[in-house]
C-alpha cells in the first residue's frame, strides 16, 4: 500500500490539467462572493450569519458522515474538495433573512448527507444537493415564514414594493390577481428595494460571478443564457405576446441564481453539447409553464425535475465516434 504514493494508477486519458475538482469548486465559491457581499449590504449582518451557518453545517455534516463511515481525520481533510462549501453557500444565499437560524442547518445537513453522501459523494449525486436543501427548507419551514423582508437600500425609482409579496408573487398572480411590479427593471436588476432571498435579489452580482466563471473556463455561459431567454420568451407567449412581461419575469425570483449556479452543476447536466441545449431549453419551458400554472416560484422544482431526466437524455444523446455509421438492420 505504501507504493501507492509513488506509483499512481489511473485510467486514460492521462492528461494533466490544473482543473481539479478542488480548483473548480474553489472558483465557484469565489464566484458566489459578489452575491454574498451584495446580500450583506442589502440585508445586514444577519445575512452573513445565515450563510456562514449554512456553509459550516454543510462542511461539518460531510465530516461527520465520513467519520461515521470509518474514515480517519487526515483522510477526510485530504479528500475535502470544497463542494460542500458550494452547496452550503447556495443554500444560504437562497433563503431570506427572516428565516430562523436552524433552517439552513437542517437544509444543509439534509442536502449533504441524504442527497450527496448517501449516493456516494461528490460527482455521484443524481440531483443537485443545494436544490434539494433549498426545497427541504421551503417545504419544512414555510409555516414559520410569512413574507420576505425588504432590503435596507431603497429603490432607485423611489417606489416601494408591497412588502407582503415579492415582485414575482405579484407578477404570477399569487393572490389571484396579476400585479405588475411597480419597480423599474433597473431596480429588479440591482435588487434595490426588492424583497427576496439573500443572494438572488442582486442580479448584477450573480452576473459578475457568472462572467468570472466563464472567464476561467468553468462555465459555458451559453447554457444558462438559453435557459433564461427561453423562460422569458415562453412567459411572454403564455401571456398573449405581451413583451412587457419579458424583463420582469427573468429579473424577478430565483431564476438568475438558479440558471447560473444551480442548473449548471457539472454532475447533474448532460454530457454532450446538443444534449445540454435540449436540457436547458426544456428547463426554460418547464420553469415558465409551471410558474404560470402554480402561481409560485418554481425554479428549484423545475431544476430538480430536469436533474432527474439527465440519465434519460444521456442515454439517447451521446457522442458518435468519428467515422461511425449506423449498422444496417438485417433484413428479415
Amino acid at each position: 500500500m505504501a507504493n501507492s504514493d509513488i506509483l499512481l494508477f489511473s485510467s486514460s486519458p492521462h492528461v494533466k490539467s490544473p482543473k481539479t475538482t478542488k480548483w473548480i469548486m474553489l472558483n465557484v465559491c469565489i464566484a458566489l462572493l459578489p452575491s454574498l457581499i451584495f446580500g450583506i449590504i442589502y440585508f445586514g449582518l444577519k445575512a452573513l450569519l445565515l450563510v456562514a451557518v449554512s456553509v459550516l453545517s454543510a462542511v461539518v455534516s460531510e465530516f461527520i458522515y465520513l467519520f461515521i463511515t470509518g474514515k480517519k481525520f487526515d483522510e477526510i481533510v485530504k479528500q475535502f474538495d470544497y463542494s460542500s462549501c458550494v452547496t452550503g453557500l447556495l443554500i444560504g444565499l437562497t433563503i431570506g433573512t427572516n428565516y430562523p437560524i436552524y433552517a439552513p442547518i437542517f437544509g444543509s445537513a439534509f442536502a449533504i448527507i441524504v442527497v450527496k453522501m448517501l449516493f456516494g459523494g461528490t460527482g455521484k449525486n443524481i440531483v443537485n444537493p443545494a436544490i434539494v436543501g433549498r426545497i427541504f427548507i421551503f417545504i419544512s419551514f414555510q409555516t414559520v415564514i410569512t413574507a420576505y423582508l425588504s432590503p435596507n437600500i431603497a429603490s432607485i425609482s423611489g417606489k416601494t414594493l408591497d412588502t407582503s409579496a415579492t415582485a414575482l408573487a405579484g407578477l404570477l398572480g399569487q393572490d389571484g390577481v396579476q400585479i405588475f411590479p411597480n419597480l423599474s427593471n433597473w431596480d429588479l436588476f440591482l435588487g434595490t428595494g426588492l424583497s427576496g432571498c439573500i443572494g438572488e435579489t442582486c442580479k448584477l452580482a450573480i452576473l459578475i460571478g457568472a462572467v468570472y466563471l466563464a472567464c476561467v473556463g468553468i462555465l459555458n455561459i451559453l447554457y444558462p443564457i438559453i435557459y433564461v431567454i427561453v423562460c422569458g420568451l415562453f412567459t411572454v407567449l403564455l401571456n398573449g405576446f405581451d413583451f412587457a412581461f419579458f424583463l420582469p419575469s427573468i429579473l424577478s425570483g430565483g431564476l438568475m441564481i438558479g440558471a447560473f449556479f444551480m442548473a449548471t452543476d457539472y454532475v447533474t447536466t448532460p454530457n454532450t453539447k446538443i444534449a445540454n441545449y435540449i436540457y436547458f431549453f426544456i428547463l426554460g419551458l418547464l420553469t415558465a409553464g409551471l410558474r404560470q400554472a402554480t402561481h409560485m416560484e418554481v425554479v428549484s422544482f423545475a431544476i430538480l425535475l430536469m436533474n432527474l431526466t439527465v440519465p434519460i437524455i444521456d442515454k439517447f444523446i451521446y457522442h458518435r465516434p468519428f467515422g461511425y455509421y449506423k449498422p444496417k438492420k438485417e433484413a428479415k
Partner: peptide, 15 residues
C-alpha cells in the same frame, strides 16, 4: 414547539 413540515408531506413519508 419545533416542526419540520417536510415529514408530514408525502415526500417525507417515502423518506
Amino acid at each position: 414547539d419545533f416542526e419540520i413540515a417536510f415529514f408530514s408531506s408525502s415526500a417525507g413519508a417515502f423518506f
